[in-house]
Design a protein around this nucleic acid. Sequence first.
DNA 1: CTGTTAGCGCATTCAC
DNA 2: GTGAATGCGCTAACAG
Lengths: 330, 330
Amino acid sequence: MGTEKISMKKISEEAGVSVATVSRVINQNGRFSKETEEKVLRVIKKYDYRPNLLAKGLRTKNSKSIGVIVPDITNEFFARIFRELETRLFQKGYTVILCNSGEDPHIEDIYYQHLLTKGVVGVIYLSGKNDRRAIDSPIPVVYIDRALNFETNGAFIESDSIQGGYLATKELLDNQCKRILLVRDKRIITPPEHRQKGYEKALIEANIKVDPQLIVKADVGYESGKEAIKKAVNCNLRFDGVFATTDWLALGVIDGLRELSYRIPEDIKVIGFDNISISRFSYLPFSTIHQDIPKISEAAVNVMLKLIKDQEVPDKHIVIPVKLIKRESV
Amino acid sequence: MGTEKISMKKISEEAGVSVATVSRVINQNGRFSKETEEKVLRVIKKYDYRPNLLAKGLRTKNSKSIGVIVPDITNEFFARIFRELETRLFQKGYTVILCNSGEDPHIEDIYYQHLLTKGVVGVIYLSGKNDRRAIDSPIPVVYIDRALNFETNGAFIESDSIQGGYLATKELLDNQCKRILLVRDKRIITPPEHRQKGYEKALIEANIKVDPQLIVKADVGYESGKEAIKKAVNCNLRFDGVFATTDWLALGVIDGLRELSYRIPEDIKVIGFDNISISRFSYLPFSTIHQDIPKISEAAVNVMLKLIKDQEVPDKHIVIPVKLIKRESV
DNA sequence: CTGTTAGCGCATTCAC
DNA sequence: GTGAATGCGCTAACAG
């Protein structure tokens, strides 16, 4: 073990001033002369002293740390958002505690409680599930991607999923698809719900009736996409295009279709959603809807910072535009 | 904003005992009667009180939080390790602060310093680069994946890269490859260096001379792998097998080869390293070396916990076995 | 401009 | 068994 922990007291003694003065120059709170400043600064540098943020946090009630709860950081989408959040937040002097909830509301709650005791000044939920604490949280809560109750002391940032669903479906339509299968996450949560809305909107606009048979609900993930598409084919569902509400689902669909000897895009066209790297690097780089992760994160950080400072947040619900990425699957 | 923050003092008043007693029952430090315990517990439950960990940390010099510094959490390998670390650590009452350094030693250092001021009781580096602080850190440091100075107050956990390189190369050899190209990360750091060692070991064992021409050094990443392999082909290098030291490199190699109209595995066999999901879901699921991430993380956490408690750590350098995953590229 | 004082919320002597 | 007192390291009045 290396250097002893050194405190403000030592610095003040060494510099021949009071701790209050040391505190003032450290925080640049004024009320000290140029000379004493230099004196103090010299001693600080000499000992390579840094203030104990725990003590500071206890005193000021600002721990300068915020919590982020994600279902699973292993998911590239969450990891990319987290990275942006963390970098931006650190730049503003905040450190971030990351928690993996595994989509379990109970665990989410345990984490949330624990974060409170750690004195975090705010928490960001990615795809949060737990609605209980959102309502009267003593600290600001911002949600990304999934809407919960945020009116009281929080905010909600999301991609424009309706527009995304619309763009995806329209792209298929524009490429002569007549019967478009929607393969969606079965859960009743904002993203798939909105993506479906966009899908329906595009169909209606093209004077095509929405056929409930063509909407298939699946669990999340690759295997599930594969399974769903095979079942659809086996049920003699006819379709010439597929819009899958996530890239993993889309990849499963593509591989399932290939195993059934369909050619993509000749026989069937496929489009996904998210633009994660798998969409670019899989056998058949496939078209998808791009989410603007930097923008999402930036908005989340801005709102959070305002909420922390108790500033007015004009827009508690921010929707970030998406865009179509054309590749080889349509 | 919801509930007021309530402290031990209030609990003690409400329960008609002193704060010391409350503290004792909370920490189960004995020296209190069954009755007072119940009384205190009741009040605690009534107010849903939880101790302020900031204050507790300040007092006990144990913040119960540890820092993890990774180059980029977006990298699936790091994310998977982090998830394991975080889950295990939380179970032991620790919370973890995650920092993205972007492989920049300077930023790593800034994070490290900041973590110290936050009172973390240990830091874990994934693929750390900064050697300066490792030597006389006041808190334990454990490295995963990349060896730095850890003798003084730290430890080092890694996969058996030599064995991995050996297994990969041998797999190629066993499948009739005669001239094996090594595409490796050019940096002089443990993982690629060891993987190359394993490669050489396998060749020597098979009585094949190591040909320096067949060792090509590349930057990290997909594009770089593609570029490297095309260059190799253009230089008229002859080879019938490729061992790439990471999966991303391997994917680049595979795609580069395909663009050059080689058939895999018929014309050329390819094997990667890491077993990240891209190796399974790419066009051609390719053979690779699997790293045992749960084991690595478990070892890291165990060692860290011991180091924190100042316990004896018999083995400061732990090597985790790897295994060969056979797929369609060889 | 500067120092003294009083806590932030908690754990830990030390008396009783 | 229990409580009063002290201090972890820091900031924020309040005097001067």
